[in-house]
């Protein structure tokens, strides 16, 4: 391997409702980062419809890949590999990206790299700054709530995860209960800023020392509280409910992240995934690590939500380790992070 030669990877991501492709140089340089969002289409249904998502992906995948190459000013001969999210995600959606990447890699004689979606979210921070190990990642999104310890490059150890709803899922459900438009998470975050956390709601700490999470109880508590108030003929201020819900969620996320960071002696903590865009969570994490020697890193908004740049960043680590995939690569909806 020639250390000086730039390694450009064409990365593809189709695990949910964004059709995305990017060209990433040496794992950190964004040459292009194309994201075609299907949000408008799914908005009609109040949530992502897997079959509709798969159809959109199949329609636009080659255009998105082409745009990524064009914006990067790259041709196939400049590429060192094709990378793709192999899981987790919606199976039909994953299959489009996986098959597109395999076909492209085969046609151009390029190596193929399968990437774990969460590894991608975590590596998104590499696009912004250097890392120090060991590091801890709080992964928060519509499908995930995980605490991941990274002792060395490319080695992921799952410390804890949600036992029921993902945090983004809980946000969306509570937002729907409050009658907020789709996608509910950002709307709820906005509403919470105008309210006060005056509604008593539970905080799910689980057993002593556990790094797991649970949000379904909190979600039910919000629904019951609203229901009971209505029964009494009272109307709770939705902004106060939002603020109270948000506080309960953020308290447990920041506290568990801080405890894990302390216990594992990490040098840096990052918050990644779509919910890392949440302003309340960003502020609380910044406050928590303000006086700490632990470095806090939260990627900018466009790298928090699903994109292919992060897949290219994660793929570069596989490339360096010589970890390639075969033409039998499959889309795996429940792909474990640690293998």
């Amino acid at each position: 391997m020639n250390e000086h030669e730039p390694i450009d990877i064409l990365a593809v991501e189709t695990s949910c409702d964004e059709t995305a492709a990017a060209v990433i140089r040496n794992g950190t340089g964004i040459r292009s980062n194309v994201v075609l969002s299907q949000m408008k289409s799914h908005k009609r249904f109040g949530g992502v419809v897997p079959e509709v998502a798969s159809r959109h992906h199949a329609e636009s995948i080659t255009q998105v890949m082409e745009q990524a190459l064009e914006e990067a000013g790259s041709s196939f001969s400049d590429l060192s590999a094709v990378a793709v999210t192999e899981g987790p995600g919606l199976v039909g959606a994953l299959l489009v990206g996986v098959n597109a990447a395999k076909a492209t890699a085969y046609a151009k004689g390029l190596p193929l790299i399968g990437v774990h979606h969460i590894a991608g979210h975590i590596q998104a921070t590499r696009l912004e700054a250097e890392w120090e190990y060991p590091a801890l990642a709080l992964v928060v999104s519509g499908g995930h709530t995980e605490l991941v310890l990274i002792k060395e490059e490319g080695e992921y150890e799952l410390l804890g995860q949600t036992r029921d709803d993902a945090v983004g899922e809980a946000y969306d459900k509570v937002a729907r209960t409050l009658g907020l438009p789709y996608p509910g998470g950002p709307e709820l975050d906005k509403l919470a800023k105008t309210g006060a956390p005056t509604v008593p709601l539970p905080v799910a700490w689980l057993e002593d020392g556990s790094y797991d999470f649970s949000f379904s109880g909190l979600k039910s508590a919000v629904m019951n509280t609203l229901h009971n108030a209505r029964q009494r003929g009272e109307e709770l201020a939705p902004e106060d409910v939002a603020a109270s819900f948000q506080q309960s969620v953020i308290t447990v996320l920041t506290e568990k992240a801080a405890r894990a960071a302390e216990a594992c002696g990490v040098k840096q903590v990052m918050v990644v995934g779509g919910v890392a865009a949440n302003s309340g969570l960003r502020a609380a994490m910044e406050e928590k690590f303000k006086d700490s020697s632990i470095k806090l890193q939260i990627p900018p908004l466009h790298l928090c939500t699903d994109n292919a740049a992060m897949i290219g960043a994660a793929a570069y680590i596989n490339w360096k380790k010589g970890k390639f995939s075969g033409m039998d690569l499959n889309g795996v909806p429940g792909l474990p992070l640690h293998r």
Binding site: A58, T62, L95, V96, A100, Y106
Partner: peptide
């Protein structure tokens, strides 16, 4: 998807 990606 496979055919169009190869052809592209």
């Amino acid at each position: 998807t496979t055919a169009k990606s190869m052809a592209w």
